[in-house]
């Protein structure tokens, strides 16, 4: 999992993240939490990148680092050719309307004391986009687009809506400034299965309608597969595997990806529960991650080399890259 290397990056992309490192210092000690350690990825315009991994793998930190919230410890984040990591103050703030976020808990990310219409209109007020009448019309339009009645939204507050509807309102607030990119941080994890399905569908619609590029962060592999054009699997701050969703899911190359896929609950009593690929043990501490490949402590295939040398991303398919010394499928030469 080592997952350093930039072989998988393409020439043309809207977002390009190179050698991203995010570390947090621990109060009163010199220790650092190595949340994200030297990862690179890109998202082409109009594409959806799915970031998957367990809690603590650094996927949310990565999403926030794109937004410069907080600023990465090192590495570059470029948006549409502009290097965000070099920007400061007003120049960085001016970029913000183009990048928005949706959070995991739809209830707590909406101010309970304001009406839904005011919540969705707030970004327009902050950026003084148009007259109050134009702003109200824009809010009506986006609320309509996400399937929330704009008239009711003028008098209702978030607690009067269900979790799924609150997530729709969050999406409306995110698209109201006409952003280019939306970072979705676990937008379905807090919702019931029956409601979850609405959100990826709605995001696909919004993507078409407003020409969006998405980063979709989740631990649910089936949802990520459904919405993504590209999937990046993360483990303990490193990139394990990157590629087209169908390839990754049909022929996972990294033992960690295989373990993740085998733990998806199958709604079919005849699919025998395959416990042979189950992950054992706990995620090691990001304060002191294992040497070499970070997954080696839980990997069934680990050998001596895994402790000594960090594997680099290598191609195993046309759009399929893996960082593993003993990948489950054979590497190919990149020129093919």
């Amino acid at each position: 999992m080592a997952g350093s290397g930039t072989i998988h990056l393409r020439d043309e992309s809207l977002i390009r993240v190179e050698n991203l490192v995010v570390e947090f210092s621990v109060k009163g000690t010199k220790a650092k939490v190595k949340a994200v350690s030297n990862i690179s990825f890109d998202i082409a315009e109009g594409e959806t990148l799915g970031l998957v991994g367990e809690s603590g793998c650094g996927k949310s930190t990565t999403g926030r680092a794109i937004m410069q919230l907080p600023r990465p410890t090192s590495g570059t984040v470029a948006f549409n050719g502009t290097v965000l990591t070099d920007l400061k103050g007003e120049a960085l703030r001016a970029m913000r309307p183009q990048m928005q976020m949706i959070f995991q808990d739809p209830i707590s990310s909406l101010n309970p004391r304001r009406t839904v219409h005011a919540i969705v209109g707030e970004p327009l007020k902050i950026w003084s986009k148009g007259s109050p009448a134009e702003q109200a019309a824009k809010v009506d339009e986006v609320l309509e687009a996400v399937g929330v009645d704009p008239r009711m939204a003028r008098v209702r507050r978030p607690h009067e809506y269900s979790g799924g509807q609150c997530q729709r309102i969050s999406i409306a607030r995110a698209v109201v400034t006409d952003p280019k990119v939306i970072i979705c941080d676990e937008p379905v994890s807090a919702l019931d299965v029956s409601v979850q399905a609405q959100i990826p569908n709605l995001l696909e619609d919004m993507k078409q309608r407003y020409g969006l590029t998405l980063a979709f962060i989740a631990h649910d592999l089936a949802v990520v597969k459904n919405i993504s054009d590209n999937v990046a699997v993360m483990y303990l701050g490193k990139m394990c595997e990157v590629g087209a969703p169908d390839e990754i899911y049909n022929t996972p190359a990294h033992p960690y990806t295989r373990a993740l896929i085998s733990s998806i609950p199958m709604p079919d009593p005849d699919v025998a529960l395959d416990t042979s690929q189950r992950l054992v043990g706990e995620l090691p501490s990001p304060l002191d991650p294992p040497s070499g490949c970070r997954f080696r402590t839980r990997c069934p295939l680990a050998q001596d080399i895994c402790a000594q040398v960090e594997p680099q991303l290598t191609a195993v398919g046309k759009r399929h890259f893996v960082a593993c010394h003993f990948p489950l499928i054979t590497p190919v030469s990149i020129s093919t």
Binding site: V193, S194, Q196, A197, P200, E204, D220, L221, A222, V223, K225, N226, I227, S228, D229, P245, D246, Y249, I261, I264, P267
Partner: peptide, 10 residues
């Protein structure tokens, strides 16, 4: 309503 891994993406 459960997303299936067997289905192609999108």
């Amino acid at each position: 309503s459960i997303p299936k891994v067997e289905y192609p993406s999108h």
